[in-house]
Amino acid sequence: VTLFVALYDYEARTEDDLSAHKGEKFQILNSSEGDWWEARSLTTGETGYIPSNYVAPV
C-alpha cells in the first residue's frame, strides 16, 4: 500500500477530482497518469484524482 499525506488543501474542480484537506492520508491507486494521481481517501473512502504535487509520502 502506497500512502501519501496532503500537504495543502485542494478543492475538487471536476467530478473526477477528489478534494483533500491538509494532513489527510491517501492510498495511491494509480500514479501513471502524470501530474494527477488516482487516490482513495483513508478518511472518507472516496476515490478520485488529486494533484501529485499536493501530497508527499508518509
Rank of each mutant, 00 (worst) to 15 (best):
E24W: 05
K25F: 15
G45W: 07
T14M: 10
S52C: 14
Y49K: 13
V5C: 09
Y49A: 04
T14E: 08
E11Q: 12
S41E: 02
G23R: 01
W37S: 02
F4K: 01
A39N: 00
G23W: 05
L3P: 05
D35I: 10
Y49Q: 06
S19W: 06
Y10T: 02
V55G: 02
K25Y: 15
L3G: 02
V1W: 14
Y10W: 15
L7V: 07
E11Y: 10
E46I: 10
S19M: 06
T47V: 14
V5K: 03
L42C: 15
E15L: 11
V1H: 13
P51K: 07
E11N: 09
A12R: 09
A20V: 15
D35S: 09
N53I: 11
S19C: 07
A12L: 02
V58W: 14
L7M: 08
E38I: 15
R13E: 10
G45K: 04
Y10H: 04
N53V: 10
E33I: 11
A12S: 09
E38Y: 15
F26V: 03
N30S: 11
Y54V: 15
E38K: 13
A6R: 00
E33F: 12
E33V: 11
Y8D: 07
A20P: 02
T2N: 11
N30F: 08
E33A: 13
W37V: 09
V55S: 00
T14G: 15
G48P: 00
S32A: 11
T14P: 02
W37Q: 03
Y8I: 06
V58S: 07
L7G: 01
T44G: 03
E46N: 12
L42Y: 06
Q27L: 14
V55T: 03
N53S: 14
H21R: 14
D9G: 04
N30G: 09
R13H: 09
Y8A: 09
D17V: 12
L7T: 04
V55R: 00
I28C: 05
T47E: 08
A39E: 00
N30M: 07
T44W: 03
Y10A: 02
R13K: 12
T43D: 11
H21S: 12
I28G: 02
L3M: 10
V1P: 12
P57W: 06
Q27R: 09
T14I: 05
P57G: 04
E11H: 11
K22T: 08
N53L: 10
W36M: 15
K25H: 13
V58Q: 06
F26M: 04
F4A: 08
S41G: 01
R13L: 10
F26K: 01
Q27V: 15
K25G: 04
E38F: 15
R40K: 11
L18Y: 03
Y10G: 00
E15M: 11
F4L: 05
I50G: 01
G23V: 01
K22S: 05
I28M: 04
G48L: 05
T2M: 13
Y8T: 06
S52F: 08
G45N: 07
S19K: 06
P51Y: 09
V1Y: 14
A12G: 10
F4G: 04
G48H: 02
S52I: 07
A12H: 04
I50L: 12
L3H: 08
D35V: 09
A39V: 15
S31I: 11
L18N: 01
E24C: 06
D35Y: 14
D9H: 06
G23K: 01
I28K: 02
D17L: 08
G34M: 11
Q27I: 15
Y49N: 07
N30A: 08
I28Q: 01
S41K: 08
S41H: 03
E24Q: 05
Q27A: 10
R40P: 00
S19E: 05
E46T: 07
Q27F: 14
S32E: 10
P51W: 09
G45H: 06
H21D: 04
I50V: 06
I28V: 08
T44F: 03
G34A: 13
L42F: 06
Y49G: 03
E38G: 03
S32I: 10
R40I: 10
V1D: 12
F26H: 00
L42M: 13
N30V: 08
E11R: 09
V55A: 03
Q27G: 02
S19P: 11
A12W: 04
L42R: 01
L29P: 03
E11P: 06
G34D: 12
V58D: 08
Y10N: 00
V55E: 00
D17T: 13
G23Y: 05
Y54F: 12
V58H: 07
D16K: 15
L29S: 05
Y49L: 13
E24S: 03
G34I: 10
E46D: 08
A20R: 01
A12F: 03
D9S: 07
N30C: 11
D16T: 15
E15T: 12
P57C: 08
F26D: 00
E46M: 14
V1S: 12
P51T: 03
D9R: 05
L7K: 05
L29V: 07
A12V: 04
L7A: 03
L3I: 15
L3C: 14
F26A: 00
G34R: 12
S32C: 14
N53P: 05
P57D: 04
Y54Q: 06
L42D: 03
T14Y: 14
W37G: 00
D16A: 14
F26I: 04
H21L: 10
G23I: 01
E11I: 13
E11G: 05
G48I: 05
G34H: 11
G48Q: 00
E24T: 03
S52Y: 09
K22F: 06
V1C: 15
L29E: 04
E11A: 10
P57K: 07
A20Y: 07
F4I: 05
G45A: 04
S32N: 10
P51A: 05
A6M: 09
Y8K: 07
H21W: 08
N30W: 08
D35Q: 10
W37A: 03
A39P: 00
T43L: 12
T44K: 03
D9T: 06
T2K: 12
R40Q: 07
T2E: 10
E33P: 10
N53G: 11
D16M: 14
T43C: 14
D35F: 13
A6N: 00
K25E: 08
P51M: 06
A39K: 01
N53R: 14
V58Y: 13
L7Q: 04
A20L: 15
A20C: 14
F26G: 00
A56H: 08
K22I: 11
K25W: 14
D16P: 03
G45F: 07
A6Y: 03
E33W: 11
L29Y: 06
P51I: 04
F26T: 00
K22Y: 06
A39M: 14
L7N: 02
L42T: 07
P57T: 05
E33M: 14
Q27Y: 14
S19T: 10
E46V: 10
D35C: 14
D17R: 13
I50C: 05
S41C: 06
L29D: 04
G34W: 09
Y49D: 01
W36V: 09
S31C: 15
V5Y: 13
E11V: 13
Y10K: 00
K22M: 09
Y54R: 07
P51R: 08
T14R: 14
T14S: 14
T43Q: 09
E38N: 07
A12P: 11
K22G: 03
S41Q: 02
L18T: 02
P51Q: 06
P51E: 02
E15G: 13
D35W: 10
A6T: 03
D9P: 06
D9M: 06
I50M: 04
W37M: 06
L18I: 12
E46P: 01
N53C: 15
V55L: 15
Y8M: 10
E15V: 12
G23M: 03
L3N: 04
S32W: 09
L29C: 08
L42A: 04
D35R: 08
V1F: 14
I28P: 00
A12D: 02
P51F: 07
A56L: 07
D17E: 15
W36P: 05
E38H: 14
A12T: 04
L7Y: 03
S19N: 10
E38D: 04
V55Y: 02
S31W: 13
D16S: 14
V55W: 03
A20G: 03
S31D: 12
E46K: 15
T47W: 09
I50W: 02
A12K: 09
A20D: 00
